[in-house]
Design a protein around this nucleic acid. Structure first.
Length: 112
DNA sequence: TGAGTGACTTTAA
DNA sequence: TTTAAAGCCACTC
């Protein structure tokens, strides 16, 4: 069965939260997972992103790990597409590491 | 059914 | 302090 089914409830949640990330802001998998009530399922958030392939509505490039590193940039179409997208939003990214991550960090549990 | 994987996180040494 | 390992849930084969 493909993950692409009718969008599992869990996945849909992740997409919705990710879609609500403000421009020029980023969040972490754990933050989203925790907001969904599955703080221990941070990996699942990443899985959801993996299934978001083709979902342009989901700015997966705004979702990074807890350190602010573009761990999933390798999964993007381009090798540096993720970084370019972030830089395009005013986020400074150096070596897959977001600069001032604490400043651009956006916590759904705090804002939502 | 069972075992393996994964875009992470947290705790332990 | 930094580095290493385990844990966790959901999904696939």
């Amino acid at each position: 069965m493909g993950i692409k089914k009718e969008e599992a409830n869990f996945f849909d949640r992740v997409y919705e939260v990710t879609r609500r990330i403000p421009y020029g802001r980023v969040t972490s998998y754990g933050a989203i997972a925790k907001y969904l009530g599955a703080a221990r399922s941070a990996r699942m958030v990443g899985w959801a992103m993996n299934a978001c392939d083709g979902r342009e509505d989901v700015p997966a490039h705004r979702v990074v790990n807890r350190k602010g590193v573009l761990t999933g940039k390798h999964h993007f179409q381009g090798t540096n597409l993720m970084q370019q997208l972030l830089e395009s939003e005013g986020i400074e990214v150096i070596d897959n590491q977001i600069q001032d991550f604490n400043t651009v960090f956006w916590d759904p549990a705090t804002n939502l």
